[in-house]
Amino acid sequence: MAEVAHAPEPQAEAPAAMTVSDEVAIDISGMNKWYGEFHVLKNIDLTINKGERIVVCGPSGSGKSTLIRCVNALEKFQKGSITVDGIPLTSDIKKIDEIRRDVGMVFQHFNLFPHLTILENCTLAPIWVKKMPKKEAEEVAMKYLTRVKIPEQAAKYPGQLSGGQQQRVAIARALCMNPNVMLFDEPTTALDPEMIKEVLDVMVDLAQTGMTMICVTHEMGFARQVANRVVFMDQGQIVEQNAPEPFFTNPQHERTKLFLSQILAH
């Protein structure tokens, strides 16, 4: 499988910035979600500290995307609680907007705004949500576009860029709001194999700055390189979580073993 081909070498030592604080960034406790009668998420308990990088994996339909979409209220949950940076997530639209300003999200299908240029995509939210002056917003946007290595595309429209470039713009767009937490919902699944690496490189780079990240991904090389913890979900519940090394080399649960054997078998 493609993932294995570009799995980076596990690093001997994490850079200094990748240390984890003991402040809590996201706290999910006893969270349950139903779609009608269907119980999608069951008793999810997960605490993520500032600077932690969590990789969530699991078979399709296991509820992993739904889980991170609950964190910024794209999906409602019916039971339990979620607290983001000390703000409890309720149905209060003010609280939701406050959390969303604090949490950046990157989607599987990029979801760039096709009618706006790359630069406008990046400056829109800072200008309208943070009331930042246009010039300043453009400077910030160019800073992040440089960081994801595509400043020269700023005047183009999303449709003129490759998938990998679009996804890097999406990451820059989220970073322009200066979030404390970044959510990645299968950021490389919709990409051609030769573009996966450029996106993962940007994500690794981001992890090294100490950003709190939750990534739903099957990029096991990425998980080994940057994750503090790997969370394995199946049928709506967290089945196993562990540091990457023991998780990959010595999985405990039968379903984890089966899953790993399937995705690493090629």
Partner: peptide, 18 residues
Amino acid sequence: LPKGQYEAADTLGLTYWQ
């Protein structure tokens, strides 16, 4: 419009009218 456009607008913290 793809649902993703609504979601992207939401996740950036834009209000409904924005």
